[in-house]
Design a protein around this nucleic acid. Structure first.
Lengths: 146, 146
DNA sequence: CTCAGTGCAAAGGATTTGCATGCCG
DNA sequence: CGGCATGCAAATCCTTTGCACTGAG
């Protein structure tokens, strides 16, 4: 056991709000994602905790996503990746390798970030969209795929 | 409106550069994408031009992507979407509906856009990544999905 | 003629689902 | 006890591929 006992509480609360339980399988998934430095594919999640079963992992990640606990991202390969929701960690962006689909995190200068935020708010207001958030990815080649 | 005959020439040139031909099937796909206001799924492309066959559409879009003529994007649903490459149109961003996966285009104030560009360049330089471009999406709900 | 491009049908593969069983509340 | 969660295996469905044929050069 380690850090952030509060994370578990927030997660439990969000699940409860959706009429869902914070079962041990879901707990283990959240634990894996918390330790990860970047979004993980489901095979990676399964590899990180062999006691998880594939179908339950898929099912539980879908439920955790609905509960607003995790976010699903899709890059260039055939695997979806999951990470903890931004408000459970910190706002950040992704460096995506266009060759292998792998992902690394990065952040922007706060000043620029808030300019961006403001501009996007205006865009959303002018459109018929209800904005929920934004996503900024830097696309390139990772060292391995260079 | 009519036409940009020059678009065809650029496309032909890029295909030739990769040792590929600009066949009629590929020509029809490019025509469909040129008319579209937003990225299209392959079913949408096929519906727009019934003379296209599914497997060739998949194959040709993959080839057009390699040739740098189109870009493949993935949103939240199960369908990949394609649009003409940015340098064949104009740099723009996407409003993505998190419910149905549909996409609309938008642009940013040029000043902000270039600040962003600069910042991302720095990020890339500091990482072990070779930057190829960036992607900024606004995620929300479209009018239809609420 | 040759070989890339095409279309059909069948295969591939990540993700989803049916069903019987186990466990939390 | 009742119902949701789980795990296995089978089904789903977008996408890819094998193969025979056609057409451009």
């Amino acid at each position: 056991m380690s850090a952030a006992p509060e994370l578990d509480e927030v997660v439990a609360a969000r699940l409860r709000a959706g009429g869902q339980r914070f079962t041990s399988g879901r707990r283990r998934i959240v634990a894996v994602l918390r330790e990860a430095a970047a979004p993980l594919t489901i095979p990676q999640v399964l590899a990180a905790d062999r006691s998880l079963s594939q179908s339950s992992a898929y099912r539980n990640l879908a439920i955790l996503e609905q509960a607003g606990v995790v976010t699903r991202i899709v890059t260039t390969d055939d695997f979806a990746r999951y990470e903890l929701a931004e408000d459970l960690t910190e706002h950040h962006h992704h460096l995506i390798c266009s060759a292998c689909g792998d992902v690394t995190d990065f952040s922007l200068r706060p000043a620029l970030e808030s300019d961006l935020e403001r501009a996007l708010h205006n865009v959303a207001r002018r459109s018929s969209f209800t904005a929920l958030g934004h996503r900024l990815d830097l696309v390139g080649r990772c060292q391995a795929c260079r």
